[in-house]
Design a protein around this nucleic acid. Sequence first.
DNA 1: TAGATTGTTAATCGATTAACAATC
DNA 2: TAGATTGTTAATCGATTAACAATC
Lengths: 214, 214
Amino acid sequence: MRKKTSPGLSMPTLDRMPHYLHQLYLLKENGSEYVSSSKLGECLGIKDAQVRKDLASVGAYGRSWYGFNIDEAIEAIEKALGLKRRYTMAIIGIGNLGRALANYYGREETQIFDLVALFDTDSKTVGKKVAGHKVRPMKEAADFIRDNGLDIAVLTVPNDAAKEVSDMLVEAGVKGIYNFSMMELRLPPKVAVENARLSYGLYKLAYGITIRGK
Amino acid sequence: MRKKTSPGLSMPTLDRMPHYLHQLYLLKENGSEYVSSSKLGECLGIKDAQVRKDLASVGAYGRSWYGFNIDEAIEAIEKALGLKRRYTMAIIGIGNLGRALANYYGREETQIFDLVALFDTDSKTVGKKVAGHKVRPMKEAADFIRDNGLDIAVLTVPNDAAKEVSDMLVEAGVKGIYNFSMMELRLPPKVAVENARLSYGLYKLAYGITIRGK
DNA sequence: TAGATTGTTAATCGATTAACAATC
DNA sequence: TAGATTGTTAATCGATTAACAATC
């Protein structure tokens, strides 16, 4: 679980960054121009000193009296996370979850993550349109990834296919995998992996409910 | 008398527990009876001493030579997380994601989380069968939750409805909410909340890809 | 037995927080 | 100005890891 991020952000800091970013987007939408570290921290349950440290770690600095310029802070975080470019993205496995994510990500007006293709093995699904994209046969995936230099694969195939498919994705040169299966993918370190682990949330909820009941 | 008052699991420890549990289930399926802390840790990228500490914190102890009895370890973790009982669960919002999760959770042969109802506002969806459950109108949700003492609500409504709906859920007495919306729910501390935050994974992937490219 | 593995202590490492002079 | 807010240092807190006697 220990990731080597030597010159980069520490893991707890990295985990907070999307959270800051999201909150800053909301504040900006709200018409705010500046926000103090204490105000920003309050939203996320984080102390003000922590916020200042985190923002300083990506090169965002505030002003006395005013706090942080929201646009500047957004810019700094986006730059640190590598969000100042586009990433092409494909969804692999168009079952219920794949469909949901296709709509979720396909609909997003984001400039950052670009859904470009859907793949599935099932002949009943292939050729159908989902979220505006025609589903392609899985066997074309490797070539597509290679030819287009695909950045990200969202992996939503059944557990028993996950290992094999992810090997194919890596072989084809995908740069990152967002893994929604329950399989632990053991991949070369050059490939970035994020695990969604949807079922773990229920376990943690059970714990939360249990301790509150005492 | 000094009772061993369980001060609860620390957050990093709690986060690892579902991971251990899942790995132990796999090992058990595999026919193993014992596993050493170093072997278990290897699967998750965790040091052996850490594993022993974590397991000790839930009352699971190993034997020299043999390591940990897998059944005992599972039992201990399940007990610590509150998984030795059933939780009733409803899905609120039967869009694409709600459908996906209905199938995901509904299909699970688990003894622990029991999907018992689906709710939606859309009159085109209400009455339809999804994952074997008839979708009920949202306005019946509060009564259903109260009457059945529902444990967990899986919240998959659009962002702009999330706040209002979650307030209703809390008012009706739900014990925990698994929040798949991007809204930060501000709820009374008596209610357990887990946030899925599906979009954060993409941000972290982008970062992972970026640092690897350097 | 020989030696793999444990539980636990102590050392280390790293993250969070408190405190405060500097700022505008 | 008065005082809200900063960046940063030092103190604290907590988690991880190394080490090792005890175990069977």
